[in-house]
Amino acid sequence: MSSLLFQENTLRTFTECIFKAIGCPEKDAVLAADVLLSSDLRGIDSHGVARLSGYVRLWEKQRINTNPNITIVHETATTATVDGDSGLGLVVAPFAMNLAMEKAEKYGSGWVSVRNSNHFGIAGYHAMQAVKKDMVGFAMTNASPLVAPTYTTERLLGTNPMCYAFPAGNYPPVVVDMATAAAANGKLEIAQRAQKPVPAGWVQTSAGESTIDPHALKTGGSLLPLGSDRDHGSHKGFGLSATVDILTAVLSGANYGPWVPPFVAFLDPLPDLPGKGIGHFVGAMRVDGFRPVDEFKQNMDRWIERFKAAKPISEDCPVIIPGEPELEAEKLRKANGIPLTEAVVKDLRALGEKLGCGL
């Protein structure tokens, strides 16, 4: 499927317009757009402006509060729980991350759990805020249940991404940003739009059989945990996903497991939800709480250099440091524009026409 190129500023202006049209204050619209554009710039097309219509549908069904009163409902010197008042996760998560960094500046580390929020974009955006302050950043979120734990066909967990971001000296930060499923649902959506199969090991049918059909979730199938199956370590992916679910939701009071609301619109909320909204967990640790920052950065540079110097299996495929592909994508897309598939452009233009925002 062919793509059209759009300059960053064009998409940023359009995205801000959409968020303001559904009632976001100016500063929140700018922040939410920044989170989405960071995803598109970094090459994570599944979590960028392609998600805009989903947020609007949720707002239309009154599942998103575009002018939330975000509050701290429990707090100690180094920890807190935040209630997002059903706000955009794109706004609620930065509030929580700023709180975590404020605590880290005072006490060395800060940890914040979040309830009553919504989809927060890419985890990397939030974790990388800490790097700017010479801190190690953490961010994770749970999500609607699409993943079947090892040995079952029942959807009980989300793709539940986690990110760890580490500052370096002469090199860009090391950013480990990943789903705990074999693939994010957004990658299936990309394959659907491109009318292409997905790799084996991403999804299974309702009977638990491996399939390459990108539409498998629509017929009762499920995503698989990181590792794909038990023989290839899916129990480890299941364990990581469970960890994210517990830290983000059981700890905060958000919905967890099969009760996490879907990223689609529905009129009536489920009557037996155990918590509020979806959950996030973010944290920040000051590097100088462990050793001088300059020493740490020197050793991070040495770490990066040694791994980059590792002998590759093929000269065409050198070792990739976590965060490198996203950084390369950002350089290219800032210079050349952000590619959007025709299907996404059609969807965005229809959305813009409806809300009075031109693209």
Rank of each mutant, 00 (worst) to 15 (best):
Ser46Asp: 06
Asp177Pro: 08
Ala21Phe: 03
Glu189Pro: 00
Gln7Ile: 02
Ile44Arg: 05
Pro167Trp: 05
Leu188Ile: 03
Thr71Gln: 11
Cys317Phe: 12
Gly84Glu: 00
Trp259Arg: 12
Arg333Ile: 01
Pro25Glu: 07
Ser109Asp: 11
Asp229Thr: 11
Val282Glu: 07
Trp111Met: 13
Glu342Arg: 12
Trp259Phe: 10
Ser46Gly: 05
Met101Leu: 03
Arg291Trp: 12
Arg230Phe: 14
Ala21Ser: 15
Trp59Val: 10
Thr159Pro: 00
Asn160Val: 11
Asp134Cys: 01
Val319Glu: 14
Trp111Leu: 14
Ala329Gln: 04
Ala148Gln: 01
Ser210His: 14
Ser113Arg: 09
Ala130Asp: 10
Lys218His: 13
Glu102Ser: 15
Ser38Met: 12
Pro312Ala: 01
Lys276Asn: 04
Ala200Met: 13
Gln129His: 10
Ser39Asp: 03
Ile321Trp: 07
Gly108Gln: 03
Ala309Lys: 11
Ile70His: 00
Val73Thr: 15
Leu267Thr: 14
Val56Gly: 06
Phe6Thr: 08
Arg193Tyr: 08
Lys61Tyr: 12
Ile246Leu: 08
Ile122Arg: 02
Ala182Lys: 04
Leu226Ala: 13
Ile18Trp: 12
Asn116Met: 05
Glu326His: 05
Ser241His: 02
His232Phe: 10
Tyr164Ala: 08
Asn185Leu: 00
Pro214His: 05
Leu226Gly: 08
Pro322Gly: 10
Glu342Ala: 13
Val203Tyr: 03
Phe138His: 07
Leu247Thr: 09
Asn160Lys: 09
Thr13Gly: 04
Tyr171Ile: 00
Pro173Ala: 15
Asp134Leu: 03
Pro322Phe: 06
Thr219Lys: 11
Val49Leu: 04
Gly110Lys: 00
Lys354Val: 01
His119Gly: 01
Ala130Glu: 12
Thr180Val: 07
Gly121His: 08
Arg42Asp: 08
Leu156Ile: 14
Cys24Asp: 08
Leu5Gly: 06
Ala309Thr: 01
Ile70Lys: 04
